[in-house]
Amino acid sequence: MKKLLMRLPLLLVAALAVPAGAAEFADGTTDLPKPRFVSIKGGSAMMRSGPGERFPILWEYKRVGLPMEILKEYEIWRQVRDPDGTIGWMNKALLTGRRTGIVRDQQRLLYVAPDMKSRIAWRIAPGAVVNITLCEDIWCRVSKDGKSGYILRGQMWGTYAREKIEG
């Protein structure tokens, strides 16, 4: 896939990195809302103290899919906050728009329907990263390792209160 992308015209490559309906400007910034949630694309992502490679590395993240919150944009750099509240800068190439969440505090129950009276689908450990497929009101439908279920939005980090997610 990487070789294929290298052969595509530059304009098309830029379009692939930004969701449909969003614009990417010549300086590398977008018209996407800030703040917003994204996730780490690959197996190694460096968080720096400032927007550029000359700034020291604060952290190296090795968890694909870890949710991050974009606070600001500066050229190809994104100021991000991690689930622990640490703020730093990452190159936009290290991030993806795929929505994920991280389970907070303790083991949580996931239900077969968005209702605490429905059957329990499975239990999930704190710190688990899940794919978010749907969020409405106080519930989100998530999946991990072929299992899916509904979790209360407040039991994970990676969405805003009442944010609607379809995907």
Rank of each mutant, 00 (worst) to 15 (best):
I138P: 00
K147D: 07
M116Y: 02
W139I: 00
E73Q: 09
G149I: 07
G28T: 03
R78P: 14
G21Q: 01
A15I: 01
T30D: 12
V103M: 04
I102K: 13
L94M: 15
G146D: 08
L8H: 08
Y150F: 15
V38Q: 15
T96M: 09
A161G: 02
M46F: 14
V38R: 15
E24C: 12
K62V: 00
L152P: 11
D27C: 11
V64N: 04
M90N: 06
R78Y: 12
N91S: 14
W59Q: 12
K72W: 12
E24V: 11
A161M: 10
E53V: 01
A125Q: 14
E136F: 06
V103T: 01
L94G: 10
P35I: 05
S143K: 03
A125R: 12
P67F: 11
T133G: 14
G50E: 08
G85N: 09
I120K: 14
A125L: 12
K92H: 13
C140P: 02
L66K: 12
A14G: 04
W77P: 02
T100N: 13
K72D: 07
I120D: 11
V103C: 05
L66Y: 11
R48H: 14
R123T: 05
W89D: 03
D27I: 04
V129D: 04
G149K: 15
F55Y: 13
Q107F: 02
A161R: 15
P33W: 06
P114R: 02
W77A: 10
W122D: 13
A113L: 09
A23R: 08
A45G: 11
Y150C: 11
R123Q: 06
M6V: 00
R119T: 04
C140H: 04
L152N: 15
Y61Q: 04
G149F: 11
G146H: 10
L152Y: 15
M156D: 03
G43T: 12
L10P: 07
G43S: 05
D115T: 01
D115E: 05
E69T: 01
K147H: 11
